[in-house]
């Protein structure tokens, strides 16, 4: 579970939210965690990203410059961050939005058409959690109960109806 993960995509894709769910999962598992978003005008329709650090030891810099995992949902972010992933790291990319060629051989690429799958399953705007599900599968995270708790903690109390849909999206990504 420990690791440095970067979520990146467009504002509105739920990038920050997916990072928050992962942070809560890390927290529930008794890790130190930090979640740091990009902020400012770039959020309004532009690119958005967030750094998530999960560690048994105290977290120093909360900024993920060389991610072990990059979860990416648009082309500009893919272009921007592909090179920064550390050797042996993972890129999970939304293949319904990113068709670019992959330029590195020292990292692992995992495609999932998250936005397409979200639409197809009537889970629009939940491509982010499908991506997260795929990521948790890749790192062989097995505790579904914690994932559900992480989702429950992350969803605003006023929007409880979204919890079930988020869990469904997670399952789709995890089992894809």
């Amino acid at each position: 579970m420990e690791g440095k993960t970067l979520f990146a995509g467009f504002g509105g894709q739920g990038i920050l939210f997916a990072g928050k769910v992962l942070s809560y999962i890390g927290l529930i598992d008794d890790n130190n965690v930090s979640w740091l978003p990009s902020y400012g005008p770039e959020m309004r329709g532009g690119t958005a990203n967030c750094s998530v650090c999960i560690s048994k030891s105290p977290i120093g810099s909360p900024i993920v410059l060389e991610p072990e995992n990059l979860i990416v949902m648009n082309i500009p972010s893919f272009k921007k961050f592909e090179a920064s992933v550390c050797v042996g790291g993972n890129i999970i990319l939304d293949s319904s939005l990113i068709k670019d060629s992959k330029s590195r051989e020292d990292i692992f690429y995992y495609d999932i058409p998250a936005t397409y799958l979200a639409k197809k399953n009537n889970l629009e705007k939940l491509g982010n959690i499908i991506m997260l599900g795929k990521f948790l599968k890749i790192i062989e995270y097995k505790d579904k109960e914690t994932v559900v708790k992480g989702i429950e903690k992350s969803v605003s109390k006023k929007r409880k109806e979204l919890i079930e849909k988020n869990i469904e999206a997670f399952e789709i990504g995890y089992n894809n």
């Binding site: 927290l27 930090s34 979640w35 740091l36 978003p37 909360p62 900024i63």
Partner: peptide, 10 residues
């Protein structure tokens, strides 16, 4: 600073 203000921690 902006990092501390925007960062989430437990």
């Amino acid at each position: 600073d902006g990092i501390l203000g925007q960062m989430m921690e437990p």
